[in-house]
Write a protein that binds this DNA or RNA. Structure first.
Lengths: 127, 127
DNA sequence: CCGTATCCGGCTAGATACTG
DNA sequence: CAGTATCTAGCCGGATACGG
């Protein structure tokens, strides 16, 4: 780890630089994103309505927004089938898969430190 | 991973339950906490003013608040010396140490995915 | 030196209603 | 079925001033 990087920052303004941890938090943080990623890692493909049901409480506003941002960050892929009624499926990209081990470590750490009765049905969890 | 826990949740209301990933995010998320943890992991003890200097831009309000919350969550220990002028030092607890490998993995993932010119002098970083 | 007190703007997330 | 469009409340983080 290194925190004395100020001197080397001649190329860009500090404000434009992105801290890698902050980047992680931006991509996978917030109220719903980690849960969505965990759900998607569960099986190949998921439909919008299935994700919504599993999340149990999320609004359309937030789900659509979160999915769009995750897609923009390259974490998942949106596959649209032109059928009636419409069908849309979401699946993790390789980048998205790559974040899962860390999310699992976070969950493990959380379990160990919050007590074993911590469990959230709305959300991701490790048995 | 398991996401179908709704049926087993008779003991508590769902709202009272804590998802382990969300717990992690509550403890180490936000704008400054991960950086503070990384700075503290750098060496045994740190004074308030030293942390502030390293963070380069944080206000007293936010630093004091973040430190207080991290202490309340058992991530760090506050050691006060009754001297004039006052001296206060902060050090990671065992729980705090335990989160560091995950923070490092997050940083590694961030670096790999955001490009190698991503570097933030304000913040934690891996060479 | 190490904070607290107070005020404030902007963003995040939710409620509600509507659509191709 | 899979979303948009508005509107709104509340919290997060910052600015500024002051205190033991």
């Amino acid at each position: 780890m290194n925190f004395d990087g100020e001197e080397k920052l001649n190329i860009k303004k500090k404000e434009e630089l992105i801290c890698p941890v902050r980047y992680f938090l931006e991509v996978a943080g917030g109220k719903w994103k980690s849960s969505i990623l965990c759900i998607l890692s569960d099986c190949e493909c998921h439909r919008y309505s299935r994700i919504k049901r599993k999340l149990n409480g999320i609004t359309n506003t937030m789900l659509a927004k979160s999915l769009k941002e995750l897609e923009a960050d390259g974490m998942l892929e949106r596959i649209q089938y032109n059928e009636v009624p419409p069908r849309v499926e979401y699946k993790l990209t390789e980048k998205g898969e790559g974040i899962m081990p860390i999310l699992e470590d976070m969950a493990k750490w959380g379990f160990k430190n919050v007590g074993e009765d911590a469990f959230c049905g709305k959300c991701n969890s490790i048995k």
